[in-house]
């Protein structure tokens, strides 16, 4: 079954009436229903504390690492219609299908090679040749191969911040995920590294679907196909990026993107 919608895109995943409560009882998401389209970049924007990161981290069940957090509602992953928030679905299975790149580059204190290979090793891949091939492919996919091919055994910490973030993208890419989540991936990087990552993401969407949280509205406008504006845990508006940034329907959205608020 292929889901179509008002934008005539293929739906890869969608949250349905998603509520989220942190262990202390605060409700961080209220009734959020949002589609993630296949081979498109969906950007989440909104002021700090609006719940966009919380929403993103629901997609790989990161909240399950901390006891007491609670979801209500569904996130359905297509084409198999799995509700990935279902208690019967193992969070590890979800993370094997949906990978994530974090705000701060967070390579493991291991070699460049081992960083990329780790996701594959976790999946039981031990064949040296297969690993070599997939590591190379992932590093090429993250446009890092040419810079590191002669020093794959070097410690990942010796790379620059932008290179480290691309290494993290390669690590997330190596396992061939269906969706990649980006949590403000360039907020710790300089402008040149930021441009590199943005170009990279635009290329990546050929292969997978992307959901990105960004503080930077220009970035959302530059790279995303669809943009969702969130405020105080609620989804205010979701539409094609052009539409959101030129003729938003909601007054709140307009106030935020024109800088009157936020």
């Amino acid at each position: 079954m292929v889901d179509k919608n008002k934008h005539n895109e293929i739906v890869k995943a969608e949250s349905k009436k998603l509520d989220f409560y942190y262990a202390d009882g605060t409700q961080a998401l209220k009734n959020v229903s949002l589609p993630v389209y296949e081979n498109k970049i969906t950007a989440l924007i909104g002021p700090s504390g609006c719940g966009k990161s919380t929403f993103l981290r629901s997609f790989n069940r990161m909240h399950d690492l901390y006891p007491g957090n609670r979801y209500d509602g569904e996130i359905v992953l297509h084409p198999d219609n799995t509700n990935i928030l279902d208690a019967k679905v193992d969070p590890i299975e979800v993370r094997m299908r949906i990978s994530m790149v974090f705000q701060k580059p967070n390579p493991f204190p291991k070699s460049i090679y081992e960083n990329v290979a780790y996701g594959l090793r976790v999946r039981g891949e031990n064949n040296a040749r297969t690993l070599d091939d997939k590591v190379e492919e992932a590093l090429k996919g993250a446009s890092l191969w040419d810079e590191v091919k002669d020093r794959l055994q070097d410690l990942a910490f010796n790379l620059s911040g932008g290179q480290q973030q691309r290494l993290c993208i390669a690590r997330a890419l190596a396992t061939e995920p269906e969706i990649m989540l980006f949590d403000e991936p360039t907020s710790a990087l300089d402008p040149i590294a930021t441009v590199n990552i943005e170009e990279l993401m635009s290329g990546l969407k050929e292969k997978l679907s992307i959901l990105i949280v960004t503080h930077n509205m220009q970035q959302a406008a530059r790279i995303s196909d669809y943009t969702a504006y969130m405020y105080l845990g609620e989804l205010i508006e979701h539409d094609a990026t052009d539409k959101i940034f030129t003729t938003p329907t909601m007054k709140e959205t307009e106030d935020y993107i024109t800088g009157k608020f936020g």
Partner: peptide, 17 residues
């Protein structure tokens, strides 16, 4: 650091891994 731990879980590792 929490972000290193989360990175390991995010690629699909089990607690034991």
């Amino acid at each position: 650091p929490v972000h290193i731990r989360e990175a390991a879980f995010a690629v699909g590792a089990t607690k034991w891994q």
